[in-house]
Simulated scan of single mutants.
Amino acid sequence: MTIELSPSISEALTHFVAAKKSAKSVQQGHQELGRFVAWCGRDRKVADLSPIEVAEYAQQIGLGGSESVHRLSPVKTFLAYWKDQGWIENGLASHLRVPRTRRTTAGAKTANRPTYSGSQLSQEGYDRLVAQLDGLKGERAIVLEDIKRAMADKDFRENAPLEAAKDRQGIIELRIRELEASINNAQILPEGASSKVARSAVGAKVTLKDSNSGKTVAYTLVDVREADVSENKISTTSPVGQALLDRMVGEEVTINVPKGTLRYLVQRITATS
């Protein structure tokens, strides 16, 4: 199988499965690999995936408790394969670590904070999920045709196109189920002009002042499905996102991260449309 120097993530998965199809661990990890590919975006180039995004995925899976290490294992093997193939210069597998529980200076207050379960999405985020679902349903029909064509070859023992199409079908069906569940259970955040609010919550934009450097930074708190580090949209399941929930202007926030301790002063909280 030939493949370009920087394949898409879905192409990399097909290549990986074909190369490792005899490995029992890969066979058992198909579902987790499919979930990872869907989360990243199947058409993205492997070279475009950043360490921050890999760490964010690990953070999301880390909420699953004791099974998290087992679930991340096939994904870590998949990422290591990218490096072995020369598709990426710097390894990403090392960033796929189950995070330890972090503590903030809020102390006992943290335990009393409200938990945010389910999907709380902006209208934009909701529409994006619906568009992704529509696109996948279109791909579903295409893959079914690919399977029909591949099955025309009666020799199923060495039918690589059929195996690849079935693998792709499994990934698509998994992602469709996940998107349908997210859409059906979504709570769409109310729209309106930006305004000040008393406490931070999902959908709020929190402006912070770094207590050490004096620099300001603003983060928008979003559901994990809308997280985008490049736009400063951070998931409420990430260490920073969790620490910024249910805050008020004037509060000091201390966050423990791998590089050390961050200290911020909450300067402004606005509800974004």
Rank of each mutant, 00 (worst) to 15 (best):
I3F: 15
L5E: 12
P7I: 05
S10F: 06
S10I: 10
S10N: 04
A12G: 08
F16W: 02
F16R: 02
A18Q: 15
A18N: 15
K21N: 11
S25W: 05
G29S: 07
G29E: 05
H30Q: 15
E32F: 00
F36M: 10
A38G: 13
R44L: 14
V46R: 00
A47T: 14
D48Q: 11
S50C: 13
I52D: 13
I52W: 14
A55L: 04
Y57K: 05
Q59T: 10
Q60A: 00
L63A: 10
G64M: 07
G65C: 04
G65V: 06
G65K: 07
S66R: 08
S66F: 03
R71E: 10
L72M: 00
S73M: 08
S73I: 00
P74I: 04
P74N: 07
P74Y: 11
T77A: 13
Y81V: 06
W82F: 13
W87C: 04
I88N: 04
E89R: 11
N90R: 14
A93K: 03
S94K: 11
S94C: 01
R97W: 02
P99D: 14
R100P: 03
R102V: 06
R103K: 15
T104G: 15
A106W: 01
G107N: 08
G107S: 13
G107K: 10
T110M: 13
T110A: 14
T110Y: 12
T115H: 09
Q120T: 02
S122T: 12
R128K: 14
L129W: 12
V130Y: 00
A131Y: 00
Q132K: 05
Q132G: 12
D134R: 13
E139V: 01
A141I: 13
I142W: 06
V143G: 07
L144C: 02
E145L: 00
I147P: 01
I147R: 01
A150C: 07
F156L: 09
F156G: 10
R157P: 00
N159W: 03
A160G: 05
E163H: 02
A164H: 07
A165P: 03
D167G: 03
D167N: 06
R168H: 08
R168I: 07
Q169V: 05
I171A: 05
I172P: 01
E173N: 15
E173D: 10
L174R: 02
L174W: 04
E180H: 05
E180L: 02
S182A: 15
S182K: 10
S182C: 04
N184I: 10
N185E: 15
A186S: 10
Q187E: 11
Q187W: 07
P190A: 15
P190K: 12
G192L: 09
G192S: 04
A193L: 06
K196V: 13
A201Y: 06
A201Q: 08
D210P: 07
G214K: 15
K215C: 06
Y219C: 09
E226M: 10
D228Y: 11
D228V: 13
S230N: 03
S230D: 14
K233M: 05
I234V: 07
I234C: 01
S238C: 10
S238P: 05
G241L: 05
G241Q: 03
Q242W: 01
A243R: 03
E251P: 08
K259I: 15
G260D: 04
T261N: 12
L262R: 12
V266C: 05
T270R: 01
S273D: 07
